[in-house]
Design a protein around this nucleic acid. Sequence first.
DNA 1: TTGTACGCGTTATCAT
DNA 2: ATGATAACGCGTACAA
Lengths: 348, 348
Amino acid sequence: MYMKKKITIRDVAKYAGVSVATVSNVINDINKTSEETKERVLKAIKEIGYQPDFTARCLAKRKSNMIGIMLPLTEKEHFTSILLKDNPFYSEFISGIESIARQRDYDVLITGIEQGQSCRDWVNKRNLDGLIFLGIYPEVLFQEFKSLDVPIVLIDTYEEYTSQFHNIAIDDTLGAKIATSHLIDLGHRNIALATGNIEKSGVNKKRFDGYKSAMEESSLCVKEELIFTGLVSFEGGHNMAKSILESKEDITAVFAVADILAFGMIKALKEFGKSVPEDISIVGFDDLKMCEYLSPGLTTVRQGIFDKGVAAASTLIDDIEFGERKNEGIILPVELVVRESTARNKAT
Amino acid sequence: MYMKKKITIRDVAKYAGVSVATVSNVINDINKTSEETKERVLKAIKEIGYQPDFTARCLAKRKSNMIGIMLPLTEKEHFTSILLKDNPFYSEFISGIESIARQRDYDVLITGIEQGQSCRDWVNKRNLDGLIFLGIYPEVLFQEFKSLDVPIVLIDTYEEYTSQFHNIAIDDTLGAKIATSHLIDLGHRNIALATGNIEKSGVNKKRFDGYKSAMEESSLCVKEELIFTGLVSFEGGHNMAKSILESKEDITAVFAVADILAFGMIKALKEFGKSVPEDISIVGFDDLKMCEYLSPGLTTVRQGIFDKGVAAASTLIDDIEFGERKNEGIILPVELVVRESTARNKAT
DNA sequence: TTGTACGCGTTATCAT
DNA sequence: ATGATAACGCGTACAA
């Protein structure tokens, strides 16, 4: 089989009648070359169609122009794939990363993290320039991360021991508060909170705080009977809806800490003959793209998921290229998006 | 800043008291080493925690263990990101690729294709071992693809000039036929087809054929007034639903060639006070994960999108590693999934 | 501006 | 039959 020989920097040098060092300098914008020679080199590159090999460049510079995204895998999800498939949040987020990476000439690799070791191996194997972590990890893993000596961006972490990394977050408390206030404004009093584990997740904790704060400001009691905890997933929402229907609290509205949870709830409520928002109002959190696909469209707290990816990638690449370590963290805005899943409480 | 020195193959050789060649042979399972030496090398690798550098390996072997996914970009979508974000089909598909790639020790890179040139550049830059293309491309681009000299897997192509590549597809005609037949069995007669451009897309053409075939087998007339064409997107479906409501054909059922189209239609129908399936039955195509999130759940033709990714990646990597060129193409099965968006025609 | 050692693993050639 | 030496792949960077 005939194989086209790869065009190398030496071919360019020969063609332009200069040394490889000069060609390299021109390519990398190192000003050691006269304008005239530069022209000649550029012309040669164009004419023979030279394309620098990132692999070789990586080997020489120890810089791959690749960043890695680590997704958390639980026991139930042995493949990254499952996560990507089932949780639209991830694909929107990754889209944001992708768009910045492309602009800045980086490529993106994705993997799941299973044990601490695999992470270091991956970085070493591929000489990744930086990492973006989604999800929360046991504290011990962060020791490992620190020793990786590449910039790391974390998303939505509140833990003390994560403060030495970049962090992209939103005001979860505020978001939860405006969601809950919206329901209160509509005349609801018995407002349930559908959430994941509050102790284990800082995000859930903050959203609980926001819920609580809104309730208390309106002198509403935060009863334990109003808090429904379970998996943050479609199925989890489905189950919580059942519990809510069985509750004796006469619940007329629910704030769900994630859209995906709200979807499961709406589906279950309809199966039980309840309609949204006539019987129960529901507010979600995230504003996934598919919120508007549903009927009723989901009222939710919009956090720019795509923008979060953009911020994460920008922060990471800024650190990689300029060593910018503005570790204070970035807080992205939230905003209430009112659609059709919330209505005035009929009893008021 | 203190930086841990990278552990190289030479460190292993020194530690084990052998040559680098021997270490390399052991790593790559080349049987030129006595069992005893092999043991010693393996032990050394473990003890000092050696991890081969894929970058260096790639440079030496011209094999990166990375594959690329090319997504089609139209004028409106200047970033890959937008596609990924808006079309759940892509993320499910990519999940399938990811899962196989991980198992077989490959990493996956994703990009959008804008001009022919960018594709070759990307392959050269990163020394990609193979490519998976989604979507349809102008014929001229395939000349380019051929000259890339890496294995290529195409998805859902019917064009003559694509036969020299691997192709993963489904039986689109059959899928469309069972969808349409399902509606006919429910007593519907005036069944609309909601589709993208039939001339430009082989997939749409085949699905049209299936629709036609089902209709004709039941002696139903395929009237031009029943065919609604537009963009295959949520918005496209939204618009088509409006046209259908304005139609004089007394349409009681619709077969939409994509779930996303069906979602847009259902949303629009509800906005116009029509209910699904009471007033109009709708069948989609794809069985996106979110079909079951909606209410009513969408009756649709299931094609294993995830499995399609799996098949694509397996085929590609088999070719890369064993040169398997079973270019006949792979046809994955389709199956009708009945949910709540279809019901018996009230008029019958 | 240029020559060249270097990064790290692979493999062909040579030595024992 | 085993194993060691060294050239190689390609771009970078420092000394000359």
